[in-house]
């Protein structure tokens, strides 16, 4: 059974259709890349998978549980980085991570070690004592990722995780995500095409709320062109041209 299963998922905001009849699934340990131009519906899909928004039609299951009828079971299994990292500017990084760990119901005695672990993974150990409002954009983003990793959830849903990072940090985060493959099931969205080539096995391209491509990266990009990323770009532009 797939870890994430989405069937005929549709979301309407009043009369605007944000996503239209999406069907896809992600196997355990797989990394799926969400691609698509602005407003394609990537964030909306993620918000439904994490139980933040209800779908208008269709079902989404995580770990076999329906997101709508068993929200708690689903939320227990998911680490989520929203589009805008959900941070409290007046908290220290350490205080914030401890608070999120408590929200995720981590046992009190594991709390300290777990905060240190994710801080190490995301490279924020040396800013743990600082107020979040004083961090640079890239560090705020890292704290957002650290928060998602707390408790080693089976599923990670990362909405543009490398947004706002410099090239070196971007490579680090990419490597981090890649290292999660196998142990975690990951969906990540991005605008950066080479990033998909480097981290994902499968890619789903959305355009105006519909799936325009959904396949193994190799099959999608490997047929023509010189390098993988260049041909993915061609595929992307061809498929999303309105």
């Amino acid at each position: 059974m797939a870890m994430i299963e989405v069937q005929h998922l549709t979301k309407r905001y009043r009369d605007r259709v944000a996503i239209d009849d999406l069907t896809f699934s992600v196997e355990e340990g797989e990394i799926l890349g969400f691609l698509g131009p602005n407003g394609a519906g990537k964030s909306t899909t993620m918000k439904i998978l994490t139980g933040f928004l209800p779908p208008s039609e269709g079902v989404a299951r995580v770990g076999g549980f329906d997101v709508f009828t068993h929200p708690l079971e689903v939320k227990r299994r998911i680490g989520y980085l929203p589009e805008a990292p959900p941070l409290y500017p007046d908290m220290t990084v350490h205080g914030y991570l401890k608070f999120v760990a408590a929200l995720k119901r981590l046992p009190a005695r594991e709390l300290k070690g777990e905060v240190e672990r994710v801080a190490g993974l995301t490279g924020v150990t040396h800013v743990l004592g600082r107020l979040i409002q004083n961090l640079s954009k890239g560090y705020k983003q890292r704290v957002g990722i650290a928060q998602a990793l707390l408790g080693s959830p089976q599923v990670l849903i990362l909405d543009e995780p490398t947004e706002g990072l410099d090239p070196a940090q971007r490579a680090e985060v990419r490597a981090l995500i890649k290292s999660l493959a196998g142990k975690h099931t990951v969906i990540l969205s991005t605008h950066i095409l080479p990033e998909v080539t480097m981290t994902c096995e499968k890619v789903l391209i959305l355009n105006q709320g519909r799936i325009v491509a959904y396949d193994d990266l190799r099959k999608l990009a490997g047929s023509q062109g010189t390098s993988e990323s260049a041909s993915l770009e061609e595929v992307f532009i061809k498929l999303t041209a309105a």
């Binding site: 918000k47 139980g51 939320k75 989520y80 929203p82 941070l87 409290y88 999120v100 929200l103 995720k104």
Partner: peptide, 14 residues
């Protein structure tokens, strides 16, 4: 306003 509501609502919290 802070978008932290999304954190509360997607955590395993009733």
């Amino acid at each position: 306003r802070n978008k932290t509501f999304e954190l509360l609502m997607t955590a395993p919290v009733r």
